[in-house]
């Protein structure tokens, strides 16, 4: 996944966010070894110190742990990952609801719009599946 980094927010925070999402989405499985700071920094085209800061913060929260000679690893604590997943999901939902409110949608309108959109998505997906003969 490409690193889309915004220059007007601290980079290290954005790095933390991206790695969190990568962990939740399964790109990094629990127990996986992370690439070195240098490699990650080069991949993201950021300053290695910034990358180091982000990883240190992730270590502090426990999402990532370091073994002195072997490098950094994703935590195997699946509960923590699930909790993080819920937390992030909740943040997205809260933001979504706030935005819908700004548009003037009431709660019921929001829910019905959601259901309708999900339904159409399912049917278009089904059509696509039929077309491909699945």
């Amino acid at each position: 996944m490409p690193w889309n980094l915004n220059s007007d927010r601290p980079i290290f925070i954005q790095i933390i966010e991206k790695i969190q999402v990568d962990i939740i989405s399964g790109l990094y499985m629990p127990g996986d070894k992370l690439p070195s700071v240098r490699e990650l920094a080069q991949e993201a085209s950021v300053n290695p110190n910034t990358m180091q800061k982000a990883l240190s913060e992730l270590e502090r929260t426990g999402l990532v742990y370091a073994q002195r000679t072997s490098g950094r690893f994703i935590t195997e604590d699946t509960t923590m990952i699930d909790e993080l997943k819920s937390k992030l999901a909740k943040e997205i939902v809260t933001e979504f609801l706030e935005n819908m409110q700004k548009l003037g949608f009431q709660k019921e309108e929001t829910i019905s719009l959601l259901e309708k959109t999900l339904a159409t998505e399912k049917s278009t997906k089904g059509e696509a599946d039929n077309d491909t003969g699945m």
Binding site: D8, P10, F12
Partner: peptide
């Protein structure tokens, strides 16, 4: 420090 500036000013260094 670059990130500190970004945090304080909510701007990119370019801005």
């Amino acid at each position: 420090c670059v990130d500190e500036l970004r945090q304080e000013t909510h701007k990119s260094i370019d801005d």
